[in-house]
Simulated scan of single mutants.
Amino acid sequence: MAGRRGVVAGAATLVAALGGLALLATALLTSFSVARRWATSQPVQGDFELVSLGSGLAVLAFLAYGTLRRTNILVDSFTTWLPRRAARIVDAFWMLVWAAVALVLAERLLVGARETLRSGTTTMVLGLPTWWAVGFGAFGFALTAVVAAIWVVRLARGDE
Rank of each mutant, 00 (worst) to 15 (best):
E107N: 14
L105W: 01
V101E: 11
R37S: 10
L82V: 05
L117T: 07
L53Y: 05
L53T: 00
S55L: 15
R4M: 14
S52T: 13
S31F: 15
L63C: 03
R84L: 07
T67H: 11
A106Y: 02
S52M: 12
Y65A: 13
A92E: 06
R118G: 02
L53E: 02
T122R: 09
A92T: 02
L105F: 10
L21Q: 11
S33Y: 09
V15E: 07
A61S: 06
W98V: 10
V44I: 13
W98C: 13
T40Q: 09
S41K: 15
W98H: 13
R84P: 10
L68H: 00
L126P: 04
V104H: 01
Q45S: 12
E49T: 03
S77I: 00
V125Y: 02
V101Q: 06
S77R: 06
L29S: 03
D47R: 04
L105D: 09
A100T: 08
V104N: 06
S52L: 10
V97C: 13
T116M: 07
E115F: 12
D76L: 03
L126G: 01
F62I: 10
A35R: 02
I73Y: 02
W94K: 04
G127W: 08
T123L: 07
V34P: 08
L68V: 00
L57E: 02
L14C: 12
M95Y: 10
G54Q: 09
F93L: 09
S33A: 11
G19W: 01
V59F: 09
T13M: 06
L63R: 01
V51L: 05
E115H: 13
V51P: 04
A106P: 01
G54F: 09
G3L: 06
L28I: 13
A99M: 00
T67Y: 12
G127S: 05
L28V: 14
E107I: 11
R5I: 08
A64P: 12
V111Q: 15
F32D: 06
D76K: 01
A113C: 04
L103Y: 05
L14Y: 08
R69F: 09
W94Y: 14
A87T: 05
